[in-house]
Design a protein around this nucleic acid. Sequence first.
DNA 1: CAAGTTGTTTTGAGTGAATCAAAACAACCG
DNA 2: CGGTTGTTTTGATTCACTCAAAACAACTTG
Lengths: 141, 141
Amino acid sequence: MATDEAERLRAVGLKVTAPRKAVLAALDGHGHLDADTVFERVRGELPTTSLQAVYGVLAALTGAGLLRRIEPAGSPALYERRTGDNHHHLVCTKCHTVADVDCVVGQPPCLEPADAGGFTIHTAEVTFWGLCESCRSEPAA
Amino acid sequence: MATDEAERLRAVGLKVTAPRKAVLAALDGHGHLDADTVFERVRGELPTTSLQAVYGVLAALTGAGLLRRIEPAGSPALYERRTGDNHHHLVCTKCHTVADVDCVVGQPPCLEPADAGGFTIHTAEVTFWGLCESCRSEPAA
DNA sequence: CAAGTTGTTTTGAGTGAATCAAAACAACCG
DNA sequence: CGGTTGTTTTGATTCACTCAAAACAACTTG
């Protein structure tokens, strides 16, 4: 549905613009994209869009809770459509591919530290590092 | 002990140099420092050291297992002396202060994902986000 | 302990990712 | 349809980090 994106934008009180719809569409179904890749996809159907607009849109959508932003060490920031379901990530140490994992144990936020050291915690983020299937079967670097 | 650093360098097969000893010393006791802060501290007692040397040293020591490097979203890379004990981190969403927490549940690596999705996992990294004590008592931004 | 080899540090330039700012523009309200 | 508010474009800039070549210092060997 083409208006699906417009709906979601309105629902969080954001103005409906072509770049915003295009960014939402670009991230649909596909897992984890960096700003540059989103930019390329958006350009495909909306060639006047600038990279800065994409950064602005990604920031707005992340702020509004429509997107989640993750920043695995060694990769540029990645954006994904799954939000609010407290899933976590697997990152390949070789090719930096990212996959989703569902919540590791129990209820969100999944974990409580033994001692919070005076902090008021609101989020727990878990990143698993390892080799993905295709990198494991390739000759070692 | 001034030779303590030299010992540790030799133990992992690295040449003993003044910048390396100074970097190890700069990180002693203090929790989590970025490259620039390490650079400033090293400069204090070894004024000819360049920032690039610090980057090189940090990379060498991290590679040798003498330091651990963490990269919380929104902060430059931080280095710490605790390694191999599988502890995790608390990061303040306001001031980006980092504190240590011990392993959350059971034995290292603390967690196993429900479904590894074909990945061969070797590390689990947990980051807790929240407000530190002093940021909580300050007026909100 | 002097010379050579290897690896480190300096010096200087360059990159990628992201941010900032001002002007042109478009969405939504009435 | 006109005005206000917020978005996007255009262009420059920053920050953290990396690359490369030449000068230099640590450990080894004779």
